[in-house]
């Protein structure tokens, strides 16, 4: 199993490196970052001054090399807008986003897995249809709109939950639902499909022939095998969720990293945007790597090969 982990680790590193280059070079798309930074009213001299100040006059690869070197040491430069080190800015905001991400994926798993299992046990039953409806509707529901509807309904009309902010745990309920709902359909479908396949397999028949009860057949023999692909998917979804937290955080005014991303993009705060893209990518890479390892550990066929 160690060679497998090392190989995956090498691949993850290579992906991370490529992503860092892309996220750095994205911001040269506009042609002249100095002009973009100086604003439309700036004179030619101002732009030149900014160019020198931020080192935009050097070759791009040199700039990238320096940026990467500093980034590896945790230094992402200074925010143009907040005039603070980007790293401390992000560090302050990350806990909200992480909390939201963990709550979101937990919510998604806690609803999707039982629903998927129940749907697979009785295909075409009422519960299967409800699950299918929820997943189809969930995939089509624009999350920003869903969030607004929840705010109007539970935050303002019924006054059950605070509509925005992040000061208490109640503030996280609606954002968790919106974010989790986004990941639910895929997890539910995969759980259902996996359970259906496993329940039709020969070894389930063997378990029944041994005299195992239904509960034991379902949970010990079937779910154990069906859950393996769900682990990978959950990790991928967790990565997507953190990236997608920008929408949810902006709706619920949760001042996390996603909100910071929105603010800094709107304000052309390039160093912050670069750092955030890189950090969100890193999270995705780390999650999928951990999922691969966990998967290999869960699946004996991969563990020994």
């Amino acid at each position: 199993m160690l060679p497998f982990i090392l190989k995956r680790l090498g691949l993850a590193g290579l992906v991370a490196f490529t992503v860092s280059f892309i996220s750095f070079s994205l911001l040269f798309l506009s042609g002249d970052p100095a002009a973009a930074l100086a604003g439309e009213t700036a004179s030619g001299e101002d732009i030149e001054a900014i160019r020198r100040l931020y080192g935009f006059d050097r070759p791009m690869l040199v700039q990238y090399g320096e940026w990467l070197f500093q980034a590896l040491r945790g230094n992402f430069g200074e925010s143009y807008y907040f005039k603070l080190p980007v790293s401390s800015l992000i560090a302050d905001r990350l806990s909200v986003t992480m909390t939201l991400g963990v709550c979101g994926i937990t919510f998604a798993l806690l609803t999707a897995v039982p629903l998927g299992v129940a749907a697979a046990i009785r295909p075409n039953s009422i519960i299967d249809r409800v699950a299918l409806f929820l997943s189809v509707a969930g995939q089509a529901m624009p999350s920003f709109w869903f969030g607004l509807i929840l705010i109007v309904l539970f935050g303002i009309k019924l006054r059950w939950l605070p509509p925005s902010g992040a000061s208490t745990w109640q503030h996280f309920i609606m954002p968790t639902i919106v974010l989790g709902y986004y990941a639910m359909p895929a997890i539910m479908r995969l759980t259902r499909a996996g359970m259906l396949e496993v329940l039709n397999s020969d070894y389930i028949r063997t378990a029944r022939a041994k005299g195992a009860g239904e509960g034991r057949v379902l949970f010990k023999h079937a779910l154990r095998n069906a859950i393996i692909p769900v682990v990978s998917l959950a990790a991928v979804q967790m990565g997507f969720m953190l990236g997608g937290s920008i929408v949810v955080e902006s709706i619920f005014a949760l001042h996390g990293a996603g909100y910071l991303a929105w603010e800094s993009i709107a304000r052309n705060d390039l160093p912050t945007v670069q750092a955030l893209i890189l950090i969100f990518s890193m999270f995705y890479i780390i999650f999928t790597f951990l999922a691969d390892v966990l998967n290999a550990w869960l699946d004996p066929r991969m563990r020994s090969s």
Binding site: S201, D202, Y203, R205, T206, A207, R208, A209, K210, G211, A212, G213, H221, R224, N225, L298, D299, P300, R301
Partner: peptide, 25 residues
Amino acid sequence: MRGLRGDRIAMIFQEPMTSLNPAYT
């Protein structure tokens, strides 16, 4: 029936490749 299966009546299936659970020893 559950009490009988595996205890007094046992069954051997056709496909040995798939009739054992891959997740357990």
